[in-house]
């Protein structure tokens, strides 16, 4: 198992490459999703104000 994580001596290059990819893409997903949620919430609030039931 530890031999697997050592990646034949290239662990310090292989794992950071994957970690970095996950961080950048994951960060973009989270940020985009957060903005999307906010936009939906704001829009619903405004629409309720404009045409109250």
């Amino acid at each position: 198992m530890s031999a697997y994580f050592a990646m034949g001596g290239y662990a310090v290059f292989v794992w950071p490459a994957y970690a970095l990819t996950a961080t950048v893409l994951g960060g973009l997903v989270l940020y985009s999703w957060q903005r999307y949620r906010d936009s939906i919430r704001n829009l619903e609030r405004l629409q309720r104000q404009v045409s109250p039931r």
Binding site: S32, R35, Y36, S39, N42, L46, V50
Partner: peptide, 27 residues
């Protein structure tokens, strides 16, 4: 596929925000 999903989310956000801007201007 990740690009497609992210693109759809971001485009929908952009459209929502434009609608919000228009509503605020109107009111």
């Amino acid at each position: 596929l990740l690009f497609a999903a992210l693109l759809l989310v971001r485009m929908r956000t952009e459209l929502n925000e434009r609608k919000i801007r228009a509503l605020r201007l109107n009111s």
